[in-house]
Amino acid sequence: MRIVPLQDNDVAAVIGLWETCGLTRPWNDPAQDLALARKSADSVVLVARDGVGVCGTAMTGFDGHRGWVYYLAVHPDARHRGVGRALMTAAETWLADRGAPKIQLMVREDNVDALGFYEALGMSRQAVVTLGRRLD
């Protein structure tokens, strides 16, 4: 397995992976999310490849204050092989290289498997409330 930045010919496979993993929502356009991340120097979409093709992703960005990870996805057939851990390590390295002092991510509170995964990586729940509203 190798981890590289997203290429043009990966877009359809990445969106398909996100759909397979249940990461997409009707109110978020994954193609638009990819396009926005790709045009910013402060973000990268990392792609894990195995012998078959795209098996994982992590969208990573640095807002100048902290690093963020979105769309961490591992194909169900590639889980429990270290792909997610390798993607998180690559994301942390990318962020550290840019001076990010902290990494954060958001997980839906009912996603018990993801919460367990991140806690096993040494991440802990933060005492914050996420607020938001749509601007589009």
Rank of each mutant, 00 (worst) to 15 (best):
R49Q: 11
G22E: 08
Y118Q: 04
D50P: 04
T89C: 05
L72M: 09
H65K: 10
N9Q: 13
A120R: 12
A35V: 06
R79S: 03
L17E: 01
E92F: 03
G53C: 14
N111A: 12
H65L: 11
D10G: 07
A100C: 06
V4N: 08
D29G: 07
R25W: 08
L115W: 04
R81Y: 08
D63W: 07
D8T: 10
L36M: 15
A120N: 09
K39M: 14
R85I: 07
L72Y: 00
Y70A: 10
A13K: 06
R98G: 05
D42Y: 15
V11H: 07
Q7C: 13
P76H: 08
V54C: 07
R25I: 09
V45L: 09
I103Q: 09
S43I: 05
D63A: 08
L121N: 04
T57L: 07
N9I: 14
D42I: 05
P5M: 05
K39F: 04
V45Y: 01
V11M: 10
H65V: 14
G122V: 10
N111F: 07
A41M: 09
M106P: 01
A31H: 09
T89K: 13
A12Y: 10
G64P: 01
D8M: 04
A90K: 03
R66P: 02
A90Y: 02
R25C: 05
N111S: 11
L72N: 00
V4A: 14
K39P: 00
H65A: 11
V54L: 11
G22F: 11
G22W: 09
L17Y: 01
L87Y: 03
I15Y: 04
L95V: 11
S43E: 10
A41T: 12
A31G: 12
L6Y: 12
L115T: 09
E19F: 06
K39W: 06
Q104E: 13
D110R: 15
